[in-house]
Design a protein around this nucleic acid. Structure first.
Lengths: 221, 221
DNA sequence: TGTCATCTGTCATGGACTGACATAAATTAC
DNA sequence: GTAATTTATGTCAGTCCATGACAGATGACA
């Protein structure tokens, strides 16, 4: 990789770091682009060459996580029922996040705290998730062998996304707490949904229901 | 009601009408506050005394509908299971909307078309709905006799809201088409959810399941 | 080294939104 | 009916976000 690329990456990271720090210390709306740019010793105009908006820099890590999640999903074996594939992808992503360390881990946790404590950013994060919902539906429909505008695949994704959003609504700011809350919600969802609800209607093989006794056995991971 | 109040109401309505017309003819982002204010022969500063933002005026009717829905919900008999109460409230609201006529009906349909055809406004509408979700959860929790931070009541509301959002995602711009789509989704949800899923776990009386044969009999209303 | 592509800073601009203050209008009191 | 009070509106100035245009600086590459 050339010097130019590395320099750009460093500027980008510096902008994210400066932005997160300022947002956390002064508040999101109280911080101006000029302050962020000054901190990195870059012109305000340059900021907008790296990020489309003030919100964009705050949510860039959230967007990255979305991409990670989608990548996990497409890598899941097709034999897995749709909802299980979604759940497992989420578990896998949380696992990866837990293993990250160094500067990137600090950024992620800062972003987590920031988004969670700023209403407009929380709304923005939900908007991001909603925007990705279309791609999730496409992938789920592919797995179910249905059209992308099929209501059932949309419902499956929608229920899954709802659970994810409920996780974010919770008071937790800790990654482990998030994972625990997520497993609680999955258990509740399992109790609420009919077995095989996420399989095509004519499907011969109904999704096998796990024994309820060991439902949350793998929660601690 | 005094002259002052009537004048204010007229100005407010005029601003909404001018805004909707301009948004629909020129596009939302291409329209400036100055244009709207000029149309009503009012200073731009006055616009912001009536609406907090450009988005606010576009979504004011959507916000009104949210209030209507919540009013319907609190008026539902407590004997109704939570999810049924939510569904019936939605049906009632759609019914009321269908009966409205005159200038108000025109406004509502314009707003419907506008929001549906403008991505950023669609996102805004979803944000509105999400913000009201907290109040819905409180009401549902009251009906279920659980705490407002109970996961189950949150899940019930979340599933319901998801169905509402899926309705909005559809290509329909017609009120009847919307209602039909809504009924389709409810049928699908019924097929996906366990009977009594929205009742407190220790509940002795499971929610009676309607015979599947006539599931969509009342769809046409 | 010289050419080229790309990144960056500077400048100018537009549009959303806000605070402060003065004016005009409606409400109320007398 | 007039005076005093309250409230809505207009004007003005200003901040901030965001974008286009252009020129200069810097790394890439022959």
């Amino acid at each position: 990789m050339g010097l130019r690329e590395r320099k750009k990456q460093r500027t980008r990271d510096a902008l994210i770091d400066a932005a997160l720090d300022l947002f956390l210390s002064q508040g999101y709306e109280a911080t101006t682009i000029d302050q962020i740019a000054a901190e990195v010793e870059v012109s305000p105009r340059t900021f907008f060459r790296y990020f489309a908006s003030k919100e964009d820099v705050a949510l860039s890590l959230t967007a990255d996580e979305q991409e990670m999640f989608l990548a996990e999903l497409v890598a899941r074996p097709l034999s897995e029922p749709p909802f299980a594939a979604l759940s497992q992808s989420m578990r896998a992503m949380l696992g990866i996040l837990r293993e990250i360390d160094g500067a990137e881990a600090g950024r992620i946790m800062k972003a987590q705290r920031l988004v969670h404590s700023t209403p407009s950013l929380l709304a923005g994060a939900m908007r991001l998730i909603r925007e990705n919902e279309r791609r999730l539906v496409a992938e789920v429909a592919r797995r179910m062998g249905t059209a992308p505008d099929d209501l059932q695949s949309q419902l499956v994704v929608s229920v899954f996304v709802s659970i994810g959003l409920l996780c974010m609504n919770g008071p937790t700011e800790d990654l482990n707490g998030l994972a625990r809350r997520y497993e609680d919600l999955l258990t509740l969802a399992e109790r609420s949904l009919r077995p095989g609800w996420d399989l095509p209607v004519g499907s011969a093989e109904p999704e096998p229901e796990p024994e309820p006794a060991s439902a949350s056995a793998s929660a601690a991971s």
